Computed example of a mutant assay.
Amino acid sequence: MMSKKKGILNAVFLITVFAITIYAIFHGQDLGELFGYIRNTDYRYWLVAVVCVVFFICSESVIIYYMMRSIRQKIKLMHCFLYSFVGFFFSCITPSATGGQPAQIYYMKKDKLSIPVSTLVLMIVTITYKLVLVVLGTLVVIIRPAQLMHYLEPVLGWCYLGLLLNVFCVAFMMFLVFHPTLAANMMDAIIRGLGKIHLMKRTEYYREKMANAMKQYQDVAGYFRTHKLVVTNVFLITVVQRLLLFFVTYLTCRSFGIDGTGMVTIVVLQGMISVAVDMLPLPGGMGISESLFLSIFAPICGTLTLPAMVVSRGLSYYTELILSAVMTAVAHFTIGRPRKQKREER
């Protein structure tokens, strides 16, 4: 799943980024006044927000279960919930969310699920997950609604960068999926070239790994071609999933009594923050997400901007992190354990 050395490095990086973020945000602030604002909020909105976060995580479970069943894989819905919590936990604590899928595949393997099949399903999840951001960002950039652009003006550079990175990522993955032979030839040429100039050792080993990876991409392409309705439904579920998390920011604003801006505007603005930070090499977009929120929502929240940011991030990111950590522990002690006990009894 993750080597101890890599886990320690990720933990150190996460703590460092967290410490810098906390210092940058709260340095010179009146914490008494800040928490005074927070104490006066309507906590009922927070409860709804937590429910949205739980449904956001569990939506991926539904997608995994739906796709696995569509290709006649025996899988437990409850374990799909655990896979999702595991994925989001490791995504929250690793740069660019790179640790999520390897961790999910590890637990799927413990459930005796095929690694190629698991990889196929999770790759489609990743493509659709990022595609939603690409569609949102592209629509905003093309239509350029005056009200939204007014709020986004201070951070447009970050939005363009994030959209460009997401477009590149989705395009690259789709290229690998639909043109696996051409992609394989290109990757093979790159590996051989690096070997010739002595920048890469064990070229045959990496060429073999690359060939195996291309086989998985061919499987994904086959799935796209033969399960178009399934993929379309997955995309639609993913749209709802993403909106649920963006909606947390609107609920946060309402909990502070901020009601001068419409729900759609706030949800889309939060969505653009996700567009900007999704591909950056920071765990959970930590640091930059807070900074963009403070810039974008200052005209909307006024003196309540910092308290609203603290609550919004606390609900959308840290609640997700804590819940996922707890359920990851549950997954660790339950997935694969019954079969192990039965083997020991024999």
Rank of each mutant, 00 (worst) to 15 (best):
V326K: 05
F81P: 02
S84H: 00
R313E: 02
I25D: 04
Y223L: 13
L182Y: 12
I71H: 02
L229A: 15
V54W: 06
I191T: 05
M286N: 12
Q341N: 14
I143N: 08
D188I: 07
M67D: 01
I191S: 01
D30V: 01
T94K: 07
D111Y: 03
T98W: 04
S96I: 06
M78V: 15
V330M: 08
Y206I: 05
L280I: 04
Y37M: 06
H179Q: 13
V125Q: 15
P338W: 00
C92I: 04
M173A: 11
I197W: 15
V326E: 10
I93K: 01
C159R: 11
T328V: 00
G271M: 02
T94V: 01
F26W: 10
M149T: 06
H198F: 06
K209W: 11
L194E: 06
V330K: 07
G99R: 00
P283R: 11
F247W: 13
L14H: 09
F178I: 12
L282I: 14
G87N: 02
I266N: 01
S324R: 04
C52F: 13
N185A: 10
I75D: 05
A331F: 02
E204G: 07
S255L: 07
V330L: 12
S274V: 09
C301L: 08
I190Y: 08
L156W: 15
V310M: 13
L182V: 09
N233I: 11
A329G: 14
R346F: 11
F35Y: 04
Y37W: 03
V134E: 00
I25N: 01
I142F: 06
C52S: 08
V86H: 00
T232F: 13
I288Q: 13
S70Q: 12
S114Q: 07
M174R: 09
F333Y: 08
M187V: 15
Y250A: 01
F172Q: 09
D42V: 03
V167C: 06
A11V: 14
Q29N: 06
Q241L: 08
Y83I: 03
I124V: 12
M327E: 03
V48N: 05
F175A: 05
V234F: 04
I322K: 06
V311W: 01
N233S: 07
T226G: 04
R202P: 08
V135W: 06
E345R: 13
V277E: 00
G7I: 10
I296W: 05
Y160V: 04
H79N: 15
